[in-house]
Nucleic acid binder design. Structure first.
Length: 387
DNA sequence: CCTCAAGGTAAGGGTAATTTTAGTCC
DNA sequence: TGGACTAAAATTACCCTTACCTTGAG
């Protein structure tokens, strides 16, 4: 079965760069790039070699994108890349006859003398579209001995609070006292400890929703990118009652859509499933972790956020019996059949998606108009409390 | 000294798995 | 009236990139 989509795996799904394939490379300063080195027995292209050997800052990368048409990949590491990295580590270990501990010592050297640049270059070569610095950060996190310890216990919170009180935001030192990774301590602190007593959880009141919309819309004035918003600041402006994560999710998954659609909120229909499946299909990825959900969004298509689309995909996938043991192409084969027909009406490629009657029928009173349903949660004391 | 690349740490920005809540159907 | 199901909303652990700093080689 399977019938692999063939289509030869297109080039890297790489992002960045805006056309302009190379040009004169008179530019060069210090980089002394050994470009297409004839010795490409390594099969590395000039850019890949550059990415795998030079520790370039974001500014430098941006410069090369502009001047050279450099292309590199950003975002989450896919399952395939992770495997490539792990294989490369294992390969490095066995060819040099090293033990696991030796490798750990390379990844987390106890003193400068143990640094091993060759190691990092070799790993980066295994994932040719990633800059060495990205691989470095990824591996250090993925292999950290204190990673992944699950839910925070009250005692840990207490330790954290104490450590921060006495040390300040020196996360590496705090981490030693708490027994968690520095970045996890930082996250716990900013996402759960700060303003803990002011925190509100549960459904948003319509007053809160209005306030958030107001704040975000104001901050966006003049810019047109959602990510020009500093969510920490937004949280502050909400009076510290909602965290940056709460604000961000509320906005991107719900309010922004409602705002752009003039107060309407659409419901997912089988037609949307149809469109989604076909969009995914056209990507020809070998694995769903390779999908970049942001590219799936389409202003012509209901304003679904990347997050919603991703969740929708997961729901569909999990609806297939035995999906755990299937490959992505196999799953797609099934979903393609299940969603073979566009529910009457043409594929709505057009404009605003006027919710005419439509199979899924949005009405049903549901939909929380700006304040219907659960809505208000009464003034519940707070609410006023200025700010 | 001075410069600059390597590499360590913190801040900024983000995602996705899981849990909770709210409808809907029978 | 209430259990089973499902979709939407909320929560939070976990992740990646960028900014900034320190260090040591040349």
């Amino acid at each position: 079965m399977t019938a692999i989509p063939s289509t030869s795996a297109r080039p890297p799904a790489a992002v960045s760069t805006s056309g302009a394939k190379k040009s004169t490379k008179k530019h060069r300063r210090t980089l002394d790039m050994t470009l297409p080195s004839a010795s490409d027995s390594s099969s590395l292209t000039g850019h890949a070699h550059l990415l795998a050997t030079k520790w370039m800052s974001p500014a430098k990368l941006a410069e090369l994108i502009a001047s050279e048409g450099l292309v590199y990949k950003k975002g989450k590491f896919s399952a395939i890349e992770i495997k490539q990295i792990n294989d490369a580590i294992e390969n490095y270990r066995t060819t040099r006859n090293l033990s696991e501990e030796d490798v750990n010592a390379i990844i987390f050297p106890s003193d400068e003398k143990q640094r091993d640049a060759v190691f990092w270059s070799e790993l980066s070569s295994a994932v040719s579209e990633r800059p060495i610095i990205a691989v470095y950060h990824y591996v250090r996190r993925a292999r950290h001995p204190m990673k992944g310890q699950g839910k925070w216990q009250p005692e840990e919170d207490a330790k954290l609070i104490q450590a921060v009180t006495s040390l300040g935001q020196q996360w590496e030192n705090v981490a030693r006292l708490v027994g968690r990774m520095a970045t996890d301590c930082r996250d716990r602190y900013r996402n759960h400890i700060v303003n803990r007593d002011k925190r509100v959880s549960g459904p948003w009141s319509s007053a809160e929703e209005e306030k958030l919309t107001q704040i975000v819309v104001d901050m966006q004035k003049g810019k047109d990118l959602d990510n020009d918003i500093f969510w920490g600041k937004v949280s502050e402006m909400m009076g510290g009652t909602r965290t940056r994560q709460q604000c961000r999710i509320k906005w991107t998954d719900s309010l922004s859509k409602r705002y752009k659609a003039d107060g309407q909120s659409a419901r997912w229909s089988s037609r949307d499933s149809f469109i989604l499946i076909h969009k995914i299909d056209s990507l020809n990825v070998r694995d769903d972790t390779e999908i970049d959900w942001k590219t799936m969004q389409d202003p012509q298509w209901n304003l679904w956020s990347a997050h919603v689309l991703q969740r929708r995909w997961l729901t569909m996938k999990k609806g297939i019996k035995g999906f755990e043991d299937m490959t992505h192409p196999e799953i797609m084969d099934i979903l393609r059949v299940k969603n073979a027909d566009v529910p009457h009406a043409k594929v709505v490629k057009s404009a605003k998606f006027v919710v005419d009657s439509d199979d899924e029928e949005p009405r049903a009173g549901s939909s929380t108009g700006p304040g219907t349903s659960a809505g208000q949660r009464k003034g519940d004391s707070s609410d006023s409390d200025s700010e």
